[in-house]
Design a protein around this nucleic acid. Structure first.
Length: 425
RNA sequence: GGAGAGAUGGGUGAGUGGCUGAAACCAACGGUUUGCUAAACCGUCGUACGGGUAAUUCUGUACCGGGGGUUCGAAUCCCCCUCUCUCCGCCA
C-alpha cells in the first residue's frame, strides 16, 4: 500500500511510474487527492467542534461543583447542538476514510527506476547466466516424473489417493533429499547471518492482510473456515508479520530472518499448463529469507540477497539465469524483483526457483512496520525484502534430470553430507 | 468440550465518571559521578491524523483489545464481539 501523504504530494509521480506496470492510475489518484482534501477539511471542522465541546464539558463540571445549576444547564443546551454536528462530521469522515483506503489498496507498488519496460515474461531482462547446460544422451533423457517413478522416490499417484493432485508423496532417498536440501539451505542462510525462525503454518486474517494476501488473493490460500485460519502460501507471511505493528530501533537494522516451511497454494485457475510432476504443486517446501531494512540501503541488501541465492544454485551445480522482471511481469507489491531460473535438461526449459524482491515501504506501510530514525527520533516506515532460498520442487526436478546417468542420479557434492548418499539408484 | 478470570503505554501494574494521555516501578536512551565495571543521582521516554512555521518548535483531535450505547463529560457504567490466561476433561 502506497503512503497516502506521498500520493497526495506526488500524484504525477505515482501516475507516471505506474505506467511502467501498465497501470493507468490517473483516475484513482485524482479521486484519492480529491477525497483526501475533503477528508482534511472535515477533520479540521470536526476537531474544532470537539475542542469546543471538550472545553464546555470541563466548564460544566466546574459549574456543577460550584452549585451553579442554571448556568450548567445553559451550557448543556449548547453542547447538544455541537453533538449533532460532530456526529454528522464523524460519519462523513469515516465514510471518506474508508473510500480513500479502498482506492489506496488498488494502487500497485511503484517500480524502481531500473525496472525494464515490458508487458510479459518475454520482456524480462536476463542480467546473468551461469553454468553449462548438460548434454543428455538420447537414452538418458527422462523427465523427472519418470525418474521419480523409475527410482521410486516420489509417488504422485499415492498423493492423489491421499489428498489430490499436487500433493506428492516422497519416499526413501526422495524423502531424504528433501530433508537434505532444507537443511543445506537453512545452514547456508544461518552462515549468511540470518536468524532461523520456525513459524506457524497457519495464520489469522490480520496476518494475511499484513502481507497483502488478503483480501485480494483470498482464493489462492487454503482456508480452514471452522477457525478462520489460512494455510500459509509462503513463510514470508508469518515471518514478515512478526514485525507487524512494531517500531524497531534503527540500530537493529537490517533484521535478517530465515525460515523453512511447507507452503500451501490452491493455484486456482492455473490448471493445464506446466503442471506435470514437480513443476507446480499445492504443497511444497521452501526456505525463505526475509530482511527488514533501512530505506537508505535496501537496494544494496537486495543485491546481497540475490548474491546469496546465486551462491546456493552454484553450489548445487545447476545452470541458472537471473532475470530482472519487467514492469508488466512484476507482482503487485514489488518495486524490483529478480527471478532465478534453473535449466531442467530433460524438459528442456527454464524453471523458476526463486524470486527475490524489494518491496520498499509498500508492505511495511500496511504492516505498520517502522524504525525509529536516529536523528529525528521519529518513526519511519521501514523497507521489507524477501526471497526464496530456495523453493525445493523445481530444484529437485532439475537435479534429477540434469544429473541422470546410466548408473543412477548423481547427488551434487555439497549435498552428499546432508543426504548420506551420493547416488540415487 | 465444561467452569472461571482477564485485556491499560516497550514490560510489570495503579486507576470505578471530570483535576487521567494516563500513577509508580522496571527496561531503554542522554547526562553527572567513576581508574574500569557496577551502583547512585538528574533528565528524556506513546502513536496516528490534522493546522500554523523556513525550521527546532508550537497547537487541535483521536486512541486504555474491537464495535456500539448511556452522559454535558467514559480507561472507568451498559450491551455485543474477539482474543488471552487458569482449572477440569481429552490428547501428541
Amino acid at each position: 500500500m502506497l503512503n497516502l501523504r506521498f500520493i497526495q504530494e506526488n500524484p504525477q509521480v505515482v501516475i507516471e511510474k505506474l505506467k511502467k506496470k501498465n497501470f493507468d492510475a490517473s483516475s484513482i489518484v485524482s479521486q484519492i487527492t480529491e477525497l483526501s482534501a475533503k477528508k482534511n477539511e472535515i477533520q479540521a471542522k470536526a476537531d474544532q467542534y470537539k475542542s469546543e465541546m471538550n472545553k464546555l464539558s470541563k466548564e460544566i463540571g466546574g459549574l456543577m461543583r460550584d452549585g451553579k445549576i442554571e448556568e450548567a444547564n445553559a451550557a448543556k443546551a449548547r453542547t447538544t447542538e455541537l453533538k449533532d454536528s460532530i456526529k454528522q462530521l464523524d460519519d462523513d469522515f469515516a465514510q471518506i476514510d474508508k473510500d480513500v483506503f479502498e482506492l489506496q489498496v488498488l494502487l500497485p507498488n511503484l517500480p524502481a527506476d531500473i525496472v525494464p519496460e515490458g508487458r510479459s515474461a518475454e520482456d524480462n531482462l536476463i542480467v546473468a547466466r551461469k553454468g553449462d547446460i548438460p548434454e543428455l544422451a538420447a537414452n538418458n533423457k527422462l523427465p523427472h516424473w519418470e525418474l521419480a517413478k523409475k527410482y521410486d522416490i516420489i509417488d504422485f499417484e499415492l498423493g492423489v489417493k491421499l489428498t489430490g493432485a499436487g500433493f506428492p508423496v516422497y519416499k526413501g532417498k526422495g524423502s531424504r533429499l528433501q530433508r537434505a536440501l532444507i537443511n543445506f539451505f537453512l545452514d547456508e542462510a544461518r552462515e549468511a547471518g540470518y536468524l532461523e525462525i520456525q513459524p506457524p503454518l497457519m495464520v489469522n486474517e490480520d496476518s494475511g492482510f499484513g502481507t497483502g494476501q488478503l483480501p485480494d488473493k483470498e482464493g489462492q490460500m487454503y482456508h480452514a473456515t471452522a477457525d478462520n485460519l489460512y494455510l500459509i502460501p509462503t513463510a514470508e507471511v508469518p515471518v514478515t508479520n512478526l514485525y507487524r505493528d512494531v517500531i524497531v530501533d534503527a540500530r537493529e537494522l537490517p533484521i535478517k530472518n530465515t525460515a523453512y516451511s511447507a507452503c500451501f497454494r490452491r493455484e486456482a485457475g492455473s490448471y493445464g499448463k506446466d503442471v506435470r510432476g514437480l513443476n507446480r504443486l499445492h504443497q511444497f517446501d521452501k526456505v525463505e529469507i526475509v530482511q527488514i531494512a533501512h530505506p537508505d540501503n535496501s537496494y544494496e541488501i537486495l543485491d546481497e540477497m540475490v548474491a546469496h541465492v546465486a551462491s546456493l544454485v552454484e553450489k548445487l551445480e545447476l545452470p541458472y539465469r537471473i532475470l530482472r522482471l519487467c514492469g508488466g511481469d512484476m507482482s503487485f507489491t514489488s518495486a524490483l524483483t529478480y527471478d532465478f531460473e534453473v535449466y531442467s535438461a530433460a524438459q528442456e526449459k527454464w524453471l523458476e526457483v526463486s524470486s527475490v524482491s524489494n518491496f520498499e515501504s509498500f508492505q511495511a506501510n500496511r504492516l505498520k512496520l517502522r524504525y525509529r530514525d536516529e536523528a529525528t527520533k521519529k518513526p519511519q516506515i521501514a523497507h521489507t525484502l524477501n526471497g526464496s532460498a530456495l523453493a525445493l520442487p523445481r530444484i529437485v526436478a532439475a537435479l534429477l534430470e540434469n544429473n541422470q546417468t546410466p548408473e543412477g542420479i548423481r547427488i551434487p557434492n555439497v549435498l552428499v553430507p546432508y543426504c548420506g548418499f551420493d547416488l540415487i539408484n
